[in-house]
Structure formats: structure tokens, C-alpha cells
């Protein structure tokens, strides 16, 4: 692994009305996890928004974001391919389950029907065979989380941003989902930035931990 591979965050600072929320330099290799810890309201989620390119204009931010050597900082959010997962699965309620995944598949990847087939296959991979036509609202919490993960993966992201993705799951499901997520990221060689207030998440991530908002 060379130094340019993975995610490089250089001189990132985010301010709101002059108050500094985030200051960070970090290198996250492929398959590695950077955990950002902080209490709620500390502004830690703005880091993910900055990396993803959808930071609210009310914030002032600087610093460069590079992935595998190419600079993302000036790109529009949709050109960064930064997949994001929140604590809620946030499946699109107006589409069926397969539609939720098909909409994520890059547009040049074949016809409507091809994409639908790919979506069904991705569902089968996640142990959700036959759920393609279902209404997402009828799935269980764990099933929804798996669909959300498949949706992100099918969009062929270059990195993963996780915004407290486990905080709403019960203890048993949380452990299971963590393992699945990190394993998938390792397998796909994706750099991951995880934002959480749960020490157990940080421990499971087994990577560098950056703390904000404690001062």
C-alpha cells in the first residue's frame, strides 16, 4: 500500500460563526476505519458533510479531501462517490426494495431490466432473496439496515461515511451489523470514516480515534 492510496484529510477545519468545531489531519487507508468521537451537538457530523460535499453553507470550512491521490474538495457531492449511512436506514419510501438498490446503480450499467436484475442479486447476497417487490416499510430493522448497506455498495463508492449507524439498533443486532459493515468495507477496500459517541463502536472499528468537542 503506497502513501497515496486511501483517504487523505489535510488541514480540515470547520467553523460556525467563528467557533471552531473540527480541526483534523488524517490518513485512512483502504479497509481502515477512522473513528470520530464526540458528544451530541459537538459538530462531529459536519465532518462527514464536508467530506461528502453537502455541508450547509452556514458553516465555513477549509482543508483538502483526497482519495487515492485525486482531490475531491472542489467536486460536487454527486461526483465524489462518498457513500453514507445514517442511524436510520432511510430507504426511499416511494420505491420498492429492489428499486431502492437499482436507483443506486450507476446509470451507464445497462438497461432498466439489467439494473433490476443486479439489484435482485445484491438482495440475494444480503440474504433477502425474494424481497425485491416488497414495500420497504414492511421490513424489520435489521433487514432495512442490510438493504441500506447494499444500496450504498451498489453505487460503487470510493469511501464510506458512517453517521452513528448502529445507535438505533438493539444490542444483539448492533454487534452483528458492526461486524458485517466493517468486514464488507475491508473486503471492498473502502476507507471508512465513522462518527459515533459509543466507545464500543470505536473499539470494534479497531482504528485511529479522533476526539472532538471535549475541550
Amino acid at each position: 500500500m503506497t502513501k497515496t492510496e486511501g483517504l487523505a484529510l489535510d488541514g480540515i477545519t470547520i467553523r460556525l460563526g467563528g467557533r471552531r468545531l473540527i480541526a483534523l489531519d488524517a490518513q485512512v487507508g483502504r479497509g481502515e476505519v477512522l473513528t470520530v468521537m464526540g458528544p451530541s451537538g459537538s459538530g462531529k457530523s459536519t465532518l462527514l458533510a464536508y467530506i461528502g460535499g453537502f455541508l450547509d453553507p452556514a458553516f465555513e470550512a477549509e482543508g483538502s479531501v483526497r482519495i487515492d491521490g485525486s482531490d475531491l474538495t472542489g467536486l460536487a457531492a454527486e461526483d465524489r462517490h462518498a457513500g453514507i449511512l445514517f442511524q436510520d436506514p432511510l430507504l426511499f419510501p416511494h420505491l420498492d426494495v429492489a428499486g431502492n438498490i437499482a436507483i443506486a446503480i450507476p446509470q451507464h450499467s445497462g438497461s432498466r431490466r439489467d439494473r433490476r436484475r443486479m439489484a435482485e442479486a445484491a438482495l440475494a447476497d444480503a440474504g433477502l432473496e425474494g424481497f425485491g417487490d416488497a414495500d420497504p416499510d414492511t421490513l424489520s430493522g435489521g433487514q432495512k439496515a442490510r438493504v441500506a448497506l447494499q444500496r450504498v455498495l451498489m453505487s460503487r463508492p470510493r469511501l464510506l461515511l458512517l453517521d452513528e449507524p448502529f445507535s438505533k439498533l438493539d444490542a444483539h443486532l448492533r454487534e452483528q451489523t458492526r461486524q458485517m459493515l466493517f468486514a464488507t468495507a475491508r473486503q471492498a477496500g473502502l476507507p471508512v470514516v465513522l462518527v459515533t459517541h459509543d466507545e464500543a463502536d470505536a473499539a470494534a472499528a479497531n482504528g485511529r480515534v479522533h476526539r472532538v468537542g471535549d475541550s
Partner: peptide
């Protein structure tokens, strides 16, 4: 957050 997800999925 739906907007963020959509952008992350590469949607303009």
C-alpha cells in the same frame, strides 16, 4: 439526510 444519501449514491 435523504439528499446526502442521494448525493453519496452519485445522483446529481
Amino acid at each position: 439526510r435523504y439528499d446526502a444519501i442521494a448525493a453519496g449514491l452519485g445522483m446529481s
